[in-house]
């Protein structure tokens, strides 16, 4: 489906506390507006983003998910961002088989000083998901949410 008129995507952003979360703050401080579509979840490291979180976000109504990590070499836990990248790339291969376009799940790097990059990456993400249109879930996909809430105790 192509862009629906007036469609505003709902995007969940997992932001690393040490870099992109601060980067988002910086972007806010610069008073440059960026699209309000992203609901931010702060994590201590991009390596904390379990693939289960991404699947849960999608089945519970997100049209896209973005993970923003420290640049390679800068992760405070050494290789959390490297794990995040490897998981993300593998998950995206699986998501494509499930009909979820890869643009809906993006990983990028934003440091604490890169307020402008934060703005740009968010704007690009929102635009590309807007072009794709809403993530269409079937009634069967939606029915999974009930099972999920019952079963989901930990990752």
């Amino acid at each position: 489906m192509t862009s629906e008129k007036g469609f505003e995507p709902k995007i969940i952003g997992f932001l690393c506390n040490w870099c992109s979360y601060a980067g988002a703050d910086k972007a806010g401080g610069m008073q440059v507006p960026y699209p309000p579509n992203v609901q931010v979840i702060r994590v201590m490291c991009s390596g904390r983003v379990d693939p289960q979180f991404i699947l849960s976000a999608l089945v519970k109504g997100a049209d896209g998910v973005i993970i923003l990590a420290c640049h390679p070499g800068d992760c405070h836990y050494k290789e959390g961002n490297c794990r995040a990248l490897q998981r993300h790339s593998m998950l995206n291969l699986m998501l494509e088989q499930l009909g979820v376009e890869k643009e809906r799940c993006r990983l990028d790097y934003v440091s604490a000083g890169e307020g402008e990059k934060f703005n740009r990456v968010i704007a690009e993400m929102v635009q590309s998901v807007r072009m794709l249109g809403p993530l269409l879930l079937t009634p069967e996909n939606r029915a999974q949410v009930i099972c999920l809430d019952e079963q989901f105790t930990e990752c």
Binding site: D50, P51, G73, R83, A84, Q86, M90, L148, T153, E154
Partner: peptide, 25 residues
């Protein structure tokens, strides 16, 4: 305690893959 076996596999494999030294890349 795990609801999604596929996600669990992705999480596990993603943390043990070794793509070698990436300095300078």
């Amino acid at each position: 305690g795990v609801s999604d076996q596929g996600a669990k596999m992705v999480a596990a494999l993603g943390s043990i893959m070794d793509i070698g030294d990436t300095t300078g890349l």
